[in-house]
């Protein structure tokens, strides 16, 4: 008999989540606006003393090896880029969720944050190969948040997860997402989407979270972004930076070719660059 997790209990868990700070939310909204400028981000950071302190701490961490201490937000942002500020804001607002062990996925503490950070960097690298204009930092932000649903879903999923891999291996379901739907009645993308709505995140980011395993189902206006994160997620899993038992148990949607020009060599460069930046970002955000 198919077991179903308690959707109402998940709804209540989402309702109990603390909201993102107004500044962090505003930052995500600004990043999602294709017409925004760096000054818009600087203005938000300057009005948030905690964020300012964290940004300055990161830019002055030994990882970046700067000779002179950076004391202004303008310089820090021009050096770090918007993406590191987003990482800091997300870590500050959702760090507990992102760092907790994913028992349902047999993922150790910190696995979700590492996967999301790697996916963010890889999504941005993928976006460099876009056939048209692309907002690279929005791809990064989408990658950073795409699997947020696992943080809540995992607690419920652990009750029924043990049959997921055997279902996939026996061909009863197509992939891990289908196993979640079959065994639990809903999946981590849907839970993440509800969390993003609860947090009132920009629509583009909500769509990334909901459709990142099936990007063709996303509305046309956001499809390139969703495909970038779809591929960033896959690159992250290929690099061994997954969230546990579901690693690589998903399908590649080759519809990405419409939006990205990727050769085997391009993919190798993406893996190489993502790995290098991930090591640096992880260390600087940990210090």
């Amino acid at each position: 008999m198919t077991k179903v997790v308690d959707a109402e209990a998940i709804r209540q868990a989402i309702e109990r989540l603390p909201l993102f700070s107004p500044n962090a939310l505003q930052l995500l909204q600004v990043i999602a606006d294709p017409d925004h400028e760096l000054e818009d981000v600087i203005r938000i950071v300057k009005f948030d003393s905690v964020l300012t302190m964290r940004v300055l701490k990161v830019v002055n961490s030994p990882v970046y090896g700067l000779v002179n201490e950076v004391t202004s937000i303008d310089r820090a942002l021009s050096y770090l880029g918007e993406r590191m500020v987003v990482s800091i804001a997300v870590q500050d607002n959702a760090g507990q969720l992102l760092n907790k062990p994913l028992e349902g996925y047999l993922g150790e503490q910190g696995a979700l944050w590492r996967h999301d950070l790697f996916s963010a960097i890889a999504s941005r690298e993928v976006a460099r190969y876009a056939r048209g204009d692309f907002d690279l930092d929005l791809a990064f932000t989408g990658g950073l948040l795409h699997d947020i649903g696992k943080s809540i879903f995992s607690d419920f999923w652990k009750e029924v997860a043990q049959d997921a891999l055997s279902q996939i291996d026996e061909g009863m379901v197509a992939d891990y997402l289908m196993a979640e739907q079959d065994l639990a009645g809903l999946d981590h993308t849907e839970v993440g989407y509800r969390m993003a709505r609860h947090w009132q995140m920009p629509e583009a980011l909500q769509r990334v979270i909901l459709h990142h395993h099936h990007p063709a189902e996303a509305p046309d206006w956001v499809q390139p972004l969703v495909y970038a994160v779809h591929l960033g997620d896959i690159v992250s899993m290929m690099a061994g930076c997954d969230t546990g038992s579901d690693g690589l148990q998903y399908h590649l949607d080759t519809g990405y070719r419409e939006f990205f020009n990727l050769s085997p060599n391009a993919l190798a460069e993406i893996v190489l660059n993502a790995q290098e930046e991930f090591s640096r970002a992880r260390e600087s955000l940990t210090n």
């Binding site: 690589l248 590649l252 085997p264 993919l267």
Partner: peptide
């Protein structure tokens, strides 16, 4: 040398 499901040649780094 693992791969994602339904990988194409580009994404089959494991096999390469």
């Amino acid at each position: 040398g693992a791969s994602i499901m339904d990988h194409n040649e580009t994404f089959n780094i494991g096999k390469r």
